[in-house]
């Protein structure tokens, strides 16, 4: 009986957080704010419901699966949010007026493709080498290491 009440509490709390996440994704004014709602509230809601499942079944296999799912959600949510946020910022999504942005970040992130062309031009100019250099440059672009270090 006590277990049932605790499970019910977790389920309702998780449902409320999931609803709040959906409300945030729909109503917040800005892509980054919407990501704030979806990443944190959504993960918390799903995690609470999975905790409720683990408590309700109280078997070792179910608990292991629920914990694995929660760990996976918690580990992957920041990675996914970072990827979406970086791609969205580079694509220049509109942001609300009060958004603060550190000096140089916009230049470093958004002007990367234009910056790369002088590099290609100063590289080996032989027609024989250039087809090789191009896939290498493309493979190197997603890693954040290269160009911002050279930029200043």
């Amino acid at each position: 009986m006590i277990t049932e009440l605790i499970v019910s509490l977790f389920v309702v709390a998780g449902g409320i957080f999931c609803f709040a996440a959906g409300m945030g994704v729909l109503r917040l004014p800005d892509l980054l704010l919407r990501m704030h709602a979806s990443t944190k509230a959504g993960t918390l809601g799903s995690g609470l419901i999975l905790v409720a499942v683990a408590i309700a079944f109280a078997e070792s296999t179910v608990i292991a699966r629920a914990v694995a799912a929660i760990l996976f959600l918690i580990l992957t949510a920041p990675v996914a949010a970072h990827l979406i946020g970086r791609a969205a910022f580079r694509s220049g999504v509109p942001m609300i007026d009060d958004t603060a942005c550190e000096d140089g970040v916009t230049e470093a992130l958004r002007k990367r493709p234009a910056e790369r062309h002088p590099e290609d031009a100063t590289g080996p100019a032989t027609a024989h080498v250039e087809p090789e250099a191009r896939p290498e440059a493309e493979a190197g672009t997603p890693a954040t290491g290269g160009a911002p270090r050279k930029a200043p």
Partner: peptide, 27 residues
């Protein structure tokens, strides 16, 4: 969603909520 990034965020959150849905179905 006005931009593609908004749609990606919405899809991502729908998947996370379907995980919660699976947990509720198990219960």
């Amino acid at each position: 969603g006005p931009t593609l990034a908004d749609r990606i965020v919405a899809l991502d959150m729908m998947t996370v909520q379907l995980v919660a849905f699976g947990g509720l179905a198990a219960l």
